[in-house]
């Protein structure tokens, strides 16, 4: 679980490095769940400076390589303006901003991850 947005806190970076290390060692990552401000990891509209890392893109690359399930909490996302096309339409918004490889879903996905995975690690502030 990632509880903080990228850049403001190191939590996303730590979670990314941990996830990458676990995958490289051959472990399965059942899911990465983004909660609280962590949902900002999933915006496709971030444009960090050229000489900085692009955390959203790093997650996307890792997801593409390992078929990683990146889930953004719908309730936390709605509050903070992270929307996919369906959510945008439902709420009458003129745009969506979820990044490819991320999906928006419910809190049940976090509980399910807790049940199915052998360990749950929380990264936050």
């Amino acid at each position: 679980m990632v509880n903080e947005g990228p850049y403001n806190h190191q939590a996303s970076d730590s979670a990314y490095r941990f996830t990458k290390a676990a995958l490289d060692k051959g472990h399965e990552i059942f899911r990465v769940f983004f909660y609280h401000d962590g949902v900002y990891n999933g915006t496709r509209l971030g444009v960090p400076p050229q000489d900085d890392r692009n955390i959203t893109q790093l997650w996307q690359e890792l997801a593409a390589e390992h078929d990683l399930d990146l889930v953004v909490c719908v309730a936390a996302a709605q509050r903070r303006g992270i929307l996919d096309a369906d959510e945008a339409k439902r709420h009458g918004k003129d745009a969506d901003n979820i990044a490819e490889r991320f999906r928006i879903s419910g809190l049940g996905q976090l509980i399910e991850a807790g049940i199915k995975a052998d360990r749950l690690v929380v990264f936050g502030d």
Binding site: N3, R17, F18, K20, A21, A22, D24, K25, H27, D118, R119, L120, V121, V122, F123, G124, D125
Partner: peptide, 20 residues
């Protein structure tokens, strides 16, 4: 430890408590 060691610590313990 490095991040590999972090992963090993997680798998070699029963559970993880994050003191955020």
């Amino acid at each position: 430890v490095d991040y590999d060691g972090f992963v090993d610590l997680v798998t070699s313990h029963d559970n993880v408590q994050a003191w955020l």
